[in-house]
């Protein structure tokens, strides 16, 4: 085999792999989309290509029942979680990245450990607390509970980011008479938009997708978030799983995420790796 043939074969092999990987990654979502456009009995016909374009499932999910309310709940919870964890994390990250004080190492280690907590380990205690505070069936319980995984992560990523900001900038601000809070909000924050967007987005996705707490702390249909609503979506009878509406609902809650991910692709990859590889 000549060198050229060999090279051609290598190229071919690479492209076969690329196609397999892409199809493997995208097919389930693609199949959910084509299923969601089928109505009636068409849904029970296995097809590989789009055949129907009926909006009946979407109409059913959005116009009837509580699904729009569930979407609203998820948006409220996710936004609140993002804002709260960023707010708490930015100031904490400044302290952890820029101030030398006793116990900083231990604190960082503790934060990292919390991010590895199995959520089930705090479920009983949190449930008791949520009930004790009268927050059962209240979205506040979820906002609070979600801090356990968003806060350590945001603190960690923002700390690594802030550590890399030039020290002279901070010193210039100090000489200019800026107090620590002014350094954070007037000098550092404007420079941290990329990191804030990345961590905010990751926190948003985590909150949007959370299931265990949402399933446990909310039992009333009107207060449910999207993942629980989809998991519990049921048909007229126990046996009859409403696949069409489930797929439509799935597509509705996933498309915004996919669009966000595609737009912020680079940022997300950077954020994931900052949280893991660098951390």
């Amino acid at each position: 085999m000549s060198g050229r043939q060999k090279k051609l074969l290598q190229q071919l092999g690479l492209w076969v792999l690329i196609v397999i990987i892409s199809v493997y990654a995208l097919f389930p979502f693609y199949y959910a989309i084509i299923t969601s456009f089928k109505s009636g009995s068409a849904i029970f016909q296995v097809t590989y290509w789009p055949t129907d374009f009926s909006l009946a499932n979407y109409w059913g999910v959005l116009a009837q029942g509580r699904f729009p309310r569930n979407i609203f709940n998820s948006i409220v919870v996710s936004f609140a979680v993002v804002v709260l964890s960023l707010l708490l994390a930015v100031t904490a990250a400044y302290a952890l990245a820029r101030v030398r004080f006793q116990g900083r190492g231990i604190l960082l280690f503790t934060i990292l450990s919390v991010s590895m907590f199995p959520q089930i380990a705090v479920l009983a205690g949190l449930f008791e607390m949520v009930r004790g505070l009268g927050l059962y069936n209240n979205l506040l319980s979820l906002i609070l509970a979600y801090m356990i995984f968003t806060l350590p992560f945001t603190v960690w990523v923002l700390t690594t980011f802030m550590r890399d900001l030039p020290i002279e900038l901070e010193e210039a601000a100090i000489v200019d008479g800026a107090k620590p809070h002014q350094i954070i909000f007037q000098v550092f924050m404007p420079l941290m938009w990329p990191a804030l967007v990345t961590t905010g987005l990751l926190a948003f996705i985590a909150a949007w997708n959370e299931f265990l707490f949402a399933l446990t702390f909310v039992s009333n249909d009107a207060q449910r978030t999207v993942p629980v609503a989809i998991a519990l979506l049921s048909g007229a009878t126990e046996q009859e799983i409403p696949w069409g509406p489930i797929m439509a609902a799935s597509v509705i809650v996933t498309v915004p995420l996919v669009i966000l991910v595609l737009i912020f692709q680079r940022r997300i990859v950077a954020g994931l790796t900052a949280g893991a590889v660098k951390g």
Binding site: F29, I230, L260, V261, L262, Q265, V269
Partner: peptide, 26 residues
């Protein structure tokens, strides 16, 4: 390459519950 990298991010972004349902159906 950018397209493929974006494509493999799709499964990551989809909520676990949704992917469970999608595969349950498949």
């Amino acid at each position: 390459r950018g397209f493929v990298r974006a494509a493999i991010l799709v499964p990551w972004a989809i909520p676990t519950i949704v992917s469970a349902k999608m595969w349950d159906w498949m």
